[in-house]
Design a protein around this nucleic acid. Structure first.
Length: 417
RNA sequence: GGAGGGGUGGCCGAGCGGUCAAUGGCAGCAGACUGUAAAUCUGCCGGGUAACCCCCUACGUAGGUUCAAAUCCUACCCCCUCCA
């Protein structure tokens, strides 16, 4: 592969976003010629997106920054028939209202990363429900069915692996790749989209779309995939004990988001800096060269930069500041998760087990008890030795709140109201 | 439609009449060591509770047999394989 000439591909390659592409040179040339419109598809099964989608979002951001037009395709139509991947076949179909709500939530996330509008390089969001829901089976078969070879479809990884492992593959699933290919064709017709991007697991779908476009409309389409994201320890990106790492502040506070990045595995830091921040590569190289405890500096930069993209500079700085006072000075930062408690209840006295539960630091009294027995619970930084401990107004610190801690990292402020 | 196999805790997977709240692995939580990392070691890991005492809930669903069932019987639901 030669060094790409277009800004976009150079960024994508240099920062580690590229897995494979169809006609890399052709795409490079097209990107040099003028604005290219490209899309990535997203599910709308949840009211927000989590870190697992961040890689794709960043690609769209780079695309826009280098002068091209990003299209966000919402899979509203495909969501309607449920997601057939995995064994969760019976997953509930979502109603129109839920889908609409989810789309609105997702749109808010994208607003942070992309500039939407009507301009030539402004991002737009579309929903494949607009064309999929009106498909007529007979005419669809006649117009497009002839272009799909089952023999060929059977060779795609997504299908082949399932067959080799003798796992069931429903006809519905088998059709997904056709519908996705059709999305590409439709987007090309409607919005002059000529490039589809996605995770490497989407390669088969993307190639199908490229070929369908060529066969039906003689359109020159391109596809590009990014590596599937895993952490150094092999886990899927974006899952933590508390659940998914959401990109919107309603579901995950900027402080927690910052913490997620701060806790990145050493081995992932350089890679993540390239993928999830927009720092210049030279700066990243400098940070990545830090050794031993010094790498913590790089993690803080990663956390602050990544949080800036999702929540804005101010929120990121505040999260960083809170982390500093909490972790480095043993104080309590103002941005820590806060739980309110009735002042009158506190006057009477609240059991520590109960309080830990209310603060969300343990799921049950038993778990809270175990936490204390294991020596992991602290009140105002003092280890709790007695699980029968009762806290009242006397437990308030000089700030008039109680700082509850579970383990080394989980802090909650309890504030009387 | 016929024959066979199977549904066990977040996941994988033992158990196949009492000693089973259920072996083991993974994941998770806490402690130690550190650097809010990794690896390692230790403890915990259904709920209630003063403690491994007891109570409640749990091995697809609903009944039944038995002093006693995740384990046996019956019906039903679901999944898989083979045959038609």
């Amino acid at each position: 592969m030669t060094e790409p000439k277009s800004d976009f591909l150079r960024a994508i390659v240099d920062r580690g976003f590229l897995h494979q592409a169809t006609d890399f040179e052709g795409l490079d040339a097209a990107l040099c010629k003028g604005p290219v419109t490209a899309y990535i598809g997203f599910d709308c099964t949840a009211p927000s997106l989590h870190v697992g989608s961040l890689l794709q979002i960043m690609i769209l951001r780079h695309l826009q920054k280098s002068g091209h037009k990003p299209v966000v395709l919402m899979g509203g139509g495909t969501t309607k028939i449920g997601d057939p991947t995995g064994r969760d076949l019976s997953r509930q179909m979502l109603t129109e209202e839920v889908i609409a709500t989810n789309k609105a939530g997702i749109r808010k996330v994208f607003d942070k990363f992309l500039t939407f509008g009507d301009g030539p390089t402004d991002a737009v969001m579309v929903d494949n429900d607009d064309w999929l829901s009106t498909i007529n089976y007979i005419s669809f078969l006649r117009d497009f069915g002839q272009h799909f070879s089952v023999n060929r479809m059977l060779t795609f990884d997504s299908v082949r692996l399932r067959l080799e492992r003798e796992q069931p593959l429903s006809f519905l699933e088998f059709n997904y790749m056709i519908l996705q290919a059709y999305d590409f064709l439709e987007l090309n017709r409607r919005l002059k989209v000529t490039l589809q991007m996605g995770g490497s697991d989407q390669w088969g779908n993307i190639v199908n779309g490229v070929e369908l476009g060529r066969r039906v409309d003689q359109a020159e389409l391109f596809g590009l995939t990014s590596p599937l994201m895993t952490t150094a320890s092999g886990a899927k990106m974006g899952k933590t004990a508390q659940g998914a790492v959401w990109l919107n502040a309603e579901q995950l506070s900027p402080y927690d988001y910052w913490q997620f990045w701060r806790n990145t595995d050493d081995a992932d830091v350089a890679r993540f800096l390239k993928l999830f921040t927009e720092l210049p590569l030279g700066e990243i190289a400098r940070l990545a060269a830090l050794e031993g405890a010094g790498i913590n500096e790089a993690k803080k930069v990663l956390a602050t930069e990544a949080t800036t993209l999702a929540h804005g500079r101010d929120a990121a700085i505040q999260a960083e500041e809170t982390a500093r006072t909490t972790f480095e000075q043993g104080g309590l930062g103002g941005d820590l998760p806060t739980v309110e408690i009735e002042r009158t209840a506190l006057e009477k006295g609240v059991g520590i087990l109960n309080l830990l539960r209310q603060a969300g630091l343990s799921a049950s009294n038993g778990e809270a008890r175990r936490l204390i027995q294991g020596g992991g619970a602290r009140v105002n930084d003092a280890k709790v030795e007695d699980e029968a401990l009762v806290l009242d107004l006397g437990a308030l610190n000089s700030d008039g709140v109680i700082k509850l801690t579970a383990g080394k990292k989980r802090h909650v402020i309890v504030r009387p109201v």
